[in-house]
Design a protein around this nucleic acid. Structure first.
Lengths: 152, 152
DNA sequence: ATAACTGCAAAGGCTTTGCATGGAT
DNA sequence: ATCCATGCAAAGCCTTTGCAGTTAT
């Protein structure tokens, strides 16, 4: 991870602008390589490393947010405001979850934990409309769902 | 990921037993390589691949659970029952969060999303007691906390 | 004999980084 | 001249996998 000093000056380069525009244009929460493919249509010589570096800088600037989903790949969101997401366990698609932030969630933990609580991450999982109609995806989801055991 | 067929017979080997015992002994939610180091004291010839394979099998059997935290590495929990966790943003330590499962969380989404909702992942973040007293960790945490912007 | 399991090493997937070059102030 | 940014390729980190050999049934 690059050492982004808060005194660093930042320039709005072509690459940075095009990446930001790609993220702002639609709300598909793309992975870094998906952004790379989108941006490459306009800047064919851009490198994947540049994409990663700019995604990190744009996140540090508060222009976008980096989603560390429970899946493997990170995803990026052109909307910096805090909001929750829902992820398809089968195809990985990510959408915004239409639910307001739970600002009081941490209250229950005060006094009950030795940690200094800073916040929480919440993500919903399910099947997107396409995968909901796919039998193989449904079997996959059932296996996924069955464990760990539910609490009583 | 190995193709774990539900008709596969499973044997309780030395390796598997020792891994399970290491996870059950304490509740430190170790990473795979931490488990490897613990288990290696008793079985010096075990391989990291065997550890990973057994962690997957034990998870499929419902004996343990695999935690896909928002950080990079997976962690493993000897308690299979569903419960939440809190993670130190500085050192990565993970503890159980003393809060009951929120079983009604999904209700708000019914009708509001095109997804078939299956569940949610919730994780708290903060500073563990040790890192709470470490100035460098606190600065790190502040930078972490400042974005993305809070919703109004 | 068969099927499950292991150790080892290699490969894989995603992300970060070193370095020489290029561009803006 | 300075400092930020880029392209490229290599390295890094964590995890999975192929394979030949081993062990339990």
């Amino acid at each position: 991870m690059q050492d982004l000093n808060r005194t660093d000056k930042v320039r709005m380069t072509q690459q940075r602008r095009v990446i930001l525009e790609a993220l702002r244009r639609d709300n598909i929460h793309p992975t870094a390589d998906a952004i790379y493919e989108m941006v490459r249509r306009r800047l064919p010589r851009i490198s994947l490393g540049t994409v990663y570096r700019n995604l990190e800088i744009l996140t540090a600037l508060g222009e976008i947010q980096t989603l560390e989903m429970s899946g493997s790949q990170k995803r990026y969101d052109g909307i910096a405001q805090k909001h929750y997401h829902i992820r398809c366990v089968h195809c990985g698609r990510v959408d915004d979850a239409p639910i307001a932030p739970l600002n009081r969630l941490e209250d229950e933990l005060y006094g009950a934990t030795v940690y200094t609580i800073m916040g929480h991450h919440l993500e919903f999982v399910g099947l997107c409309p396409e995968c909901s109609q796919n039998e193989e995806a449904q079997r996959f989801a059932e296996r996924h769902l069955s464990m760990p055991s539910e609490s009583p």
